[in-house]
Nucleic acid binder design. Structure first.
Lengths: 329, 329
DNA sequence: CGAAGGGTTTAAAGCGCTTTAGCCGTGCGG
DNA sequence: CCGCACGGCTAAAGCGCTTTAAACCCTTCG
């Protein structure tokens, strides 16, 4: 088996120096058209591909962004994909590293930095704020989708209060008056959404009720059972996230409660799940693509620009009306 | 801002050569206890972390396995996670790279090889067999979860025919006689599952019916509607995959058809979805962890061992009985 | 006709780590 | 005593690429 061709081999084949080859292959201005041709032909002939590790080592800059991913979490994974696309647009590459039971968020970040990532984008990170700040001192860090004050790191998130507020406005506009919120449990963002719900209702002169929920279907299902056990159902339910909403939908469906005829349901996140035809959930978009783009921009501003002060970008989420909401009967 | 400490800095701090530091930090036998101590202390003091790109470049071996991931596909992503765990056990690291609209499977593989991955594990790859073989000539390749003859690459998969056969046996054992299969569409594995279904029924002296399906919920939903439009429902439906099964469940549920009382439903894959409490789908396990382990083993045999002949590992899937199957009424 | 100038090319010095050959001192047997 | 083996350490040569300063070759101009 043949050894992989090196830059030197291409240079020899083309009859020029390795420097020229390097320049041509990276499309750096300088080499003449004639040289370019010869080099490209030689590279093609040899099937040359640059060794990435060697390039990274030699280059001052790596233009690599690190993103830890929890593969089992659909939302964060979708976001990682968007980051990949956004980074691509800005001429950056993304190094993904999986969070597993064996290596937690912190270890994964270390691994990414060891790979020479120039910045790290953390999607809904779970580590303590102090750790985020400490990390921020080691390398540019952008926290995405977590409500936390920027402090040595940048933050890109959506205004969750406003998002839930839109949901409330939509329902009230349809004529709903008895609206329940099934919250997201302990998580930080859950508090924002809860607050957004109560504020919005108050704005409409209504009273709200909040039921404990959680991040997954089971929590929504449990809440639905609580509601079903009561004398009469509210006319609408706003869940703190899509998965929770789906748990609600499921239990309602099984109990013969029709959505949206008998009760309207709204989720939050607008993940792939919500978009599925058979779920068709009215929900609030987290603007994944835009958050990703802003996050990459924040990182790039520190790397290519000269910003050093932390920024906080708060996007406005928007309601995506689908099939689970309708006027009350 | 301080430059990241290098091996040389640690060496200076400890008063030894860089060679010694390298040896100590990699836990290579040789250096004396005294040297070890000094080096470790110095490294600690400086907060030294080895630069991965430099190590990779200098090392002959990288012990890196490449895995392209389609982040939006839950099954392949779960499998990637299992690969990560399995690789870890064997002392290999995994480089993940996302397949996006911008860079397809082939490009991602190139990128992984450029990173010096020593082997590539492809989970349910979509590329033509010829391309797989071509790739196999460049580096060790293990194809996971795809029924294809090994040819310059190894294959690890489960016996899909047998898996569906088990489903049929289970249903027949419960007393079902009118069983329908909603297939997985064009995909290669869909054919196996279809064949397994028909074979198993024949074995029981029964007649089977196959409805066209597909890889996602919508396909199952469509099939369910076809069934509902007919005078009487079969007593059981076997879907070619979990998502398809979920589409079926959903439409049945909305139509007031109870599962499993009115009709039993079985999926295939045993992904996270199937395990969710509110779905609780009887399904066939793909043995993700075991497939991953075998795949890593296959790669390692080529890399650390001296195997060069392709192997095909066919695991036996097993039925996971949950709440969507029961005796017919 | 020589100096100046511009466009090309290249030699060579890294990038930060690994690895090998060889050095040095010690202890041992002959 | 000498030679030898051996444990412990290090100098130095890479790994395959990038980058910079300097060399080179023309052409142009005074």
């Amino acid at each position: 088996m043949h050894r992989r061709p090196r830059l030197e081999d291409v240079a020899a084949e083309a009859g020029v120096s390795t420097a020229s080859v390097s320049l041509v292959l990276r499309d750096v201005p300088g080499p003449s058209a004639h040289t370019r041709e010869r080099v490209l032909a030689a590279a093609e002939r040899l099937g040359y591909r640059a060794d990435r590790t060697a390039s990274l080592l030699a280059r001052r800059r790596t233009r690599l962004l690190g993103v830890p991913v929890l593969l089992r979490d659909a939302f964060r994974t979708e976001m990682a994909e968007e980051v990949q696309v956004a980074a691509d647009e800005r001429g950056y590459a993304v190094a993904l590293s999986a969070i597993t039971p064996v290596s937690d968020e912190a270890r994964v970040v270390d691994a990414l930095l060891d790979m020479r990532c120039e910045a790290v984008l953390l999607v809904a990170p779970e580590m303590p704020v102090a750790d985020l700040a400490a990390l921020g001192a080691r390398a540019p860090v952008v926290v995405v989708s977590r409500h936390v004050a920027p402090d040595g790191f940048d933050v890109v998130r959506v205004a969750d209060e406003a998002g839930v507020g839109e949901s409330v406005d939509h329902l009230v506009g349809l004529g709903h008056r008895r609206i329940v919120h099934v919250d997201g449990g302990e998580a930080a963002m859950a508090a924002d959404r809860r607050a957004g719900f109560l504020d919005a209702l108050r704005r409409h002169g209504l009273d709200g009720r909040v039921l404990p929920g959680g991040p997954v279907e089971a929590a929504g299902a449990a809440a639905a059972r609580v509601l079903l056990a009561e004398p009469d159902l509210p006319t609408a339910v706003i869940a703190a996230n899509d998965r929770c909403a789906i748990g609600l939908l499921d239990v309602f469906l099984r109990a013969g409660v029709r959505v949206p005829e008998d009760v309207s349901v709204i989720g939050y996140d607008d993940g792939e799940l919500a978009r599925l035809a058979h779920i068709d959930l009215t929900t609030v978009s987290q603007e994944a693509a835009e958050q990703a783009r802003q996050a990459v921009t924040a990182a790039v501003e520190r790397l290519d620009g000269d910003r050093t002060d932390p920024v906080e970008v708060v996007l406005t989420p928007h309601l995506v009306v689908r099939g689970t909401t309708a006027p009350p009967r």
